[in-house]
């Protein structure tokens, strides 16, 4: 038994992981999440803004990290729409425009009264990373004279008076890497005192803690952050409980729980094998 376990092949571990993640996904169970204070800080910031506030959403992620970040982006967009905030979308990643489009599709489907040009505008992608941020804090026109459809920003009621992003009420950055949180903090949030909240992948979350609470008003970390934000939204807007699309993050917490438990079990098993092996004089 010891020998078998000690030389356990990776494929069996992969199979266990597959089952640990797959079965809860198929069962579609969601767990009763409780929003933590940090998530509530972010939620309250969006919630407490007066209706009609201008929010800049920079979705700097790609399809690979969309599994972790799209529920977060969707939760932000839904919340902004429920509060009737005005949204300006943009991205610093070349593969970001479809990520924006996914969220615009949510607006089109669930908030048909939300009008393009009046309630939201899609600026799309511009190359240059932090250079783009530097320019739009000074002059939006230098980087974005037209939206993603080629319409002049002067012709859209939401952006016709928007000279730069210094005047926005909140900056929401969902990012999976570079350019992302650090660049927004360095070139926009800090020098111009722009209220900023971010959502990021679990791997990049630790380094972003550096900026809380001075430069960043709050942060949502990984799918857990998204799930808690969804929960906070459901508590405030109970109609969301009937929308399964608004609970993507919550549904992913059950697979995460089982996967984490499996991980703990495997680590314990590995250590038991290590100590038994040591006692037997074997190297594990």
């Amino acid at each position: 038994m010891f020998e078998k376990l000690n030389s356990l092949e990776s494929r069996w571990i992969f199979l266990m992981t597959f089952l640990a993640v797959g079965i809860p996904i198929l069962l579609q169970k969601s767990l009763p999440e409780k929003p933590t204070p940090m998530v509530m800080d972010v939620f309250n910031l969006v919630e407490d803004l007066p209706s009609g506030s201008l929010i800049l959403c920079s979705f700097d992620f790609d399809p690979a990290s969309a599994g972790e970040l799209q529920p977060m982006a969707a939760a932000f967009v839904r919340h902004c729409a429920l509060k009737k905030h005005k949204i300006v979308f943009m991205t610093l990643w070349p593969v970001g425009p479809p990520m924006i489009q996914n969220n615009i599709n949510i607006l089109k489907k669930e908030f048909p009264d939300y009008q393009y040009g009046e309630d939201y505008v899609n600026l799309g992608y511009r190359t240059g990373g932090e250079g783009v941020i530097k320019l739009i804090t000074t002059s939006l026109d230098k980087m974005y004279s037209e939206d993603v459809n080629g319409t002049s920003l002067k012709k859209l009621s939401l952006t016709k008076d928007l000279k730069h992003i210094q005047g926005i009420d909140l900056l929401v950055n969902i990012s999976a890497g570079t350019p992302g949180v650090i660049e927004w903090v360095q070139y926009a949030s800090t020098p111009f005192n722009i209220k900023t909240v971010v959502g990021c992948t679990g791997v990049t979350a630790p380094k972003n803690y550096t900026y809380i609470p001075k430069q960043l008003a709050g942060m949502l970390g990984a799918i857990k952050g998204a799930a808690e934000y969804e929960k906070a939204s459901i508590i405030q807007y109970p109609q969301l409980a009937e929308n399964p699309q608004a609970q993507e993050g919550l549904r992913r917490m059950a697979p995460q729980l089982v996967a984490h438990l499996l991980l703990i079990f495997l680590i314990i098993l590995g250590n038991v094998l290590h100590f038994v092996g040591r006692r037997k004089g074997l190297s594990s």
Partner: peptide, 14 residues
Amino acid sequence: LSQVTYQKNFYRDQ
């Protein structure tokens, strides 16, 4: 020139 949000007490004219 521009509009800044509540609780913000400065503006940088560039």
